[in-house]
């Protein structure tokens, strides 16, 4: 009886060990990557290359997602607002939902799908072919060379992509408002503009910055701990995408709670 209880306890402890160890390794990687931002050497070329891959490369998909989510929001909101005779407020709701939530979250998920997985598979392939070890052997810190440039590039590009997605979403909403709901252009854009307060703009830019850290570090973390050949690379890629997406939603809730409690309407 005692032996069986002891065995169960050991089994439970073993189950907990893996996630606790993974969390510890993640925070160590995050700490080193953030510290490296202020340390030499700086790999400017790699940062520019990653900015191009993450920013310019993600632009078409972010524009598409932004436009259609804005248009859909306008259609859905107008239906609800028509019950109160307030269809003219469509711009207000499109603006608020895009800037506060849809812009940051959808853009981050798109970038996670495109770049977090890309980072995990690229770094994972390098790991299983000993290129990471070779890098260390040849005098380069892989975190400094591979992780920090991806972190910086994502932190710069994701808020910019979010601004573009927000604006394109508003344009999508405008097209629905003008041609389907017959709302005057001036009325739509005035309600869009007036709806926004500093609190909204701040959280609309703060969220993608936090999500950028998650997206880039999750991709790099799972890439660098890849084991087991090409099968392991596939597994790391999936894990990076799943964890980045889950964390985006969890952190979104926490950040929203902070901003709501600070008096945002």
């Amino acid at each position: 009886m005692v032996a069986s209880e002891c065995g169960e306890r050991t089994y439970l402890l073993d189950l907990l060990k893996e996630p606790v160890l993974a969390a510890q390794e993640f925070f160590l990687l995050a700490g080193k990557a953030l510290k490296n931002i202020f340390r030499r050497p700086h790999y400017g070329d790699d940062i520019a290359l990653q900015m191009d891959a993450i920013g310019v490369g993600s632009l078409p998909i972010v524009v598409m997602i932004g436009f259609f989510s804005g248009a859909v929001m306008a259609l859905q909101m107008s239906r609800a607002l028509s019950q109160y005779g307030q269809v003219g407020k469509t711009g207000t709701l499109v603006s608020l939902t895009l800037v506060r939530e849809l812009g940051p979250v959808l853009t981050s998920i798109m970038v996670a799908g495109r770049n977090s997985t890309g980072m995990a598979s690229e770094l994972g392939s390098m790991k299983v072919t000993e290129q990471i070890d070779a890098m260390r052997a040849l005098g380069t810190d892989p975190i400094q060379k591979l992780v920090t440039p991806r972190l910086i590039a994502t932190c710069v590009m994701l808020p910019l992509l979010t601004i573009i997605a927000d604006f394109v979403g508003m344009v999508g909403g405008f097209i629905i408002a003008k041609f389907v709901l017959s709302i005057e252009s001036r009325q739509y854009w005035t309600s869009v503009w007036r709806a926004l307060e500093w609190n909204d703009v701040t959280q609309g830019l703060f969220k993608p910055l936090v999500f950028a850290v998650v997206v880039s570090l999750m991709g790099c973390f799972y890439g660098l701990r890849t084991t087991g050949g090409t099968q392991g690379v596939g597994r790391s890629t999936t894990q990076a995408m799943v964890m980045a997406t889950v964390l985006i939603f969890v952190l979104d809730l926490l950040i929203t709670q902070v901003f709501v409690s600070q008096g945002g309407a």
Partner: peptide, 19 residues
């Protein structure tokens, strides 16, 4: 360790050339 590694040359099993 980087200073020590500057005095060591290593050929990895799979060559490990950067793609």
């Amino acid at each position: 360790l980087f200073d020590i590694r500057g005095k060591i040359g290593m050929l990895f099993q799979e060559s490990a050339l950067f793609d």
